[in-house]
């Protein structure tokens, strides 16, 4: 059975990639996808990139997403609504620490519900 997937959204491509790197390096067995910056690497967030990232890691277990600034949140919410996927959760937690904690939990085979609970407890 697959583990819950993780999407890291940031205004910066480098920041999102960097966070993915940290998480990947420490925690295996979890699909983490970065959705940072615009297509050409400029600062911002892109609905298309976020949707692609969700689809990339999505499975029966679900996906938990993390974002950095307010406008990233708007695009993330938009992406979830438009994909019409169940079990995708946008977390209110610091993007790096949150993604890290979620990855640890996910690697232990925890469900989306359990991961969301753990995040709420920690942050």
């Amino acid at each position: 059975m697959a583990n819950v997937g993780i999407v890291v959204i940031s205004h910066s491509e480098k920041a999102a990639e960097g966070i993915k790197e940290i998480v990947d390096q420490a925690v295996g067995k979890v699909a983490v996808e970065a959705a940072g910056g615009l297509e050409d690497g400029e600062i911002g967030t892109s609905l298309e990139k976020i949707q692609a990232a969700i689809q990339h890691v999505h499975n029966d277990q679900g996906v938990v997403m993390f974002y950095d600034l307010g406008s990233a949140k708007m695009n993330a919410e938009m992406a979830i609504e438009m994909l019409e996927l169940e079990n995708v959760h946008l977390a209110e937690a610091p993007v790096l620490e949150g993604a890290y904690l979620a990855a640890v939990e996910a690697s232990m085979g925890k469900s989306l519900k359990e991961i969301v609970k753990a995040l709420e407890k920690e942050f």
Partner: peptide, 16 residues
């Protein structure tokens, strides 16, 4: 759809 993917800032999802 284009604005939401290309604008980058808060105004993208809002105008979109």
């Amino acid at each position: 759809m284009t604005l939401m993917s290309k604008v980058g800032g808060a105004s993208g999802p809002l105008f979109g």
